[in-house]
Design a protein around this nucleic acid. Structure first.
Lengths: 201, 201, 201, 201
DNA sequence: GATGAATGAGTATTCATTCAT
DNA sequence: CATGAATGAATACTCATTCAT
């Protein structure tokens, strides 16, 4: 950010801008995300937007940062140890669905379309590492051993699978669909619960 | 399309343009996809491009049409009946991977970023119907009964899950990774093979 | 100026702003001279700047006024009568160089780039008249007669020549170069010393 | 330039744009030089301007290149050998005046205000080298010996002095003033003719 | 008086699309 | 039919200036 907002008024302005940006990104995708539109929806002048964000990228970075931090926080509250795979899966799906309820398209757009100054989706970004570790831990828990580098492949597969299901549901405006959620829980439960005897020849 | 190409030369020109468009869409995403760039890469003048495609949208629709037709065709060759879930999953993954090898990013860009005049991703589009039917059929096969409207939920979940895994692998340039493929096969196998006793309470 | 500063504090503020403006004008030219940057460098708020200067032009006029007054004052101390042309030239160059040492680029920017509400460089501006008179006097002195309207042409030529040499040296950061100064002295000496027999045919 | 103009029409467009740019630069300086204004004055759309010049800088570089090439060419036609200093000076002034007649302010703006991608006014730029060499040669000629590194100081001084006189005359719209020209010739004649016995103590 | 948040007209640049040659 | 020159609405971003606190 260009300028740390000092007064309450300016902190509110920044907040409004970030919210408006998230809304537009979610509803219209990266193509609809123009700085003038964001300012307009936020009800501030374009000059105010640039008072706090030196350029478009820094704004999208701010939105992303906030959104991903929230997502991780929500997920971290769901722990695998001590609960059955089915229970874990159910809670996880509920959490992920909740995280997608306010700005349904936001997650997908942030990850898929919007560019980033920081390579946030490099396999080495802080977010990616924490995200994968979370899933790797869950995988290891149900495989009843220490986390293991190979678990990261499974972690990525299950995380990407969940992403895919949720993102497409979001696009259809159907993240809340209980039938979809039930099947997604089943998918996760099977994948995590099964200790891995199944192998293709 | 503005004009059905009659002569061989015209058909070749259209072909070149579509290929060039697919290449750019795959490599640079929707943002890099400008009509002038497509024409340049295709080696034709911008005027010629507009001779065959009345606007940008019609070009991207043509690219999408062709790509989705190809994808469906490849998938249709893999049948569920008579093979084990594991076998089916393995063949399916192989087919999907192959379909993503030429233009790795294309599928994701077409589905996620590029706009469309026809709402191709409406649950009622021809492609969507055929795509889901395919998966629903496979689900029904392993559940050992006639296809059933409820199977469409499972169909969508598994298809979106596969999409998610493949698309993210494509972004990382890792569609060919055998470890990923093995885990994806496992995911599909478990989901299709399991007759569905698992239910959340 | 919008308001004549009465209190000592106000006068100090105005002083700081003018100094900051001169610094920026000298270092970055007219393009880098923004009111917000001046206020920042001066350590006052933009609001305070506009308390004393109704607009940008009035600020640059204040800077110019002060700078030109200083320049004239320095020059006025060097008198032609009673010293040889060579001596006069040497002292003059020294004075001009000194006047360009604090803000080397300032003079050129003020005269060449920065706009002005008063047409300060009209042949009729107070500064211009005084400036030319000074040189005309020196010319007349060495031509051993009363100042004469025709001397104003010579005055302008020699003054513009000096300007040109100094300004270009300033741009290269070489106002202090003794070799340059020596040659400049030689140029002035020859021009002033020579009573003018040389004429092109 | 972004695109080499092929057809006659486009070559004419480029020409018009360069002319309009020179006109504006000359009349209004760097601050008045906006791409939209140039396009407007040239009678072409802003898009056409950017078809040939990738950015504002490249346009100003093109204008500069053309102008400096012309200037050098005009000067090169005036040779010092075989003519008296007075004659040389007279011809040189005539040439320089001619070079400033079409776009009187252009030279000054190009050298003083307008930025440049190539550091054309670095002491090492091709233009600067050729320009100084020209004057150094003239200096050496009248000092009756081989050109000598020290002559470059004299060369720079006389060239900057001429620049200063002409530029200020241009600003006043008085490059054609014969009185000024006469005095300028005298200045040059004295400086070049005098073999340099005059030294400050 | 001082502050700095807010404003919005203005500027450089892109890109889908048209049309004269 | 093919070409590529020309168009101009749209977009990111700056900076002089105002005004509520």
């Amino acid at each position: 950010m260009r300028k740390e907002p000092r007064q309450a008024r300016s902190r509110a302005t920044v907040e409004t801008i970030v919210q408006a940006g998230a809304r537009i990104l979610s509803d219209e995708g990266w193509v609809g995300f123009t700085t003038n539109r964001v300012a307009e929806l936020a009800g501030v002048s374009i000059g105010s937007l640039y008072q706090y964000f030196p350029d478009k990228l820094s704004l999208v970075d701010a939105i992303r940062h906030r959104h991903l931090d929230d997502s991780i926080a929500v997920m971290r509250r769901i722990r695998a140890d001590g609960v059955s795979p089915a229970e874990f899966a159910a809670q996880l799906v509920q959490a992920v669905v909740a995280a997608h309820s306010v700005y349904p398209g936001l997650h997908r757009v942030l990850l898929d379309e919007a560019p980033s100054s920081e390579g946030y989706r490099n396999p080495s970004s802080a977010f990616e590492i924490e995200y994968l570790s979370y899933y790797a831990e869950a995988v290891a828990t149900y495989r009843k051993r220490q986390p293991n580098p190979a678990d990261h492949v499974a972690a990525r597969v299950i995380s990407d699978a969940i992403d895919g299901v949720i993102h497409n549901a979001a696009r259809r405006g159907a993240v809340a669909d209980p039938a979809m959620q039930r099947e997604l829980v089943r998918l996760i439960t099977l994948y995590l619960g099964e200790p891995g005897q199944i192998r293709e020849s």
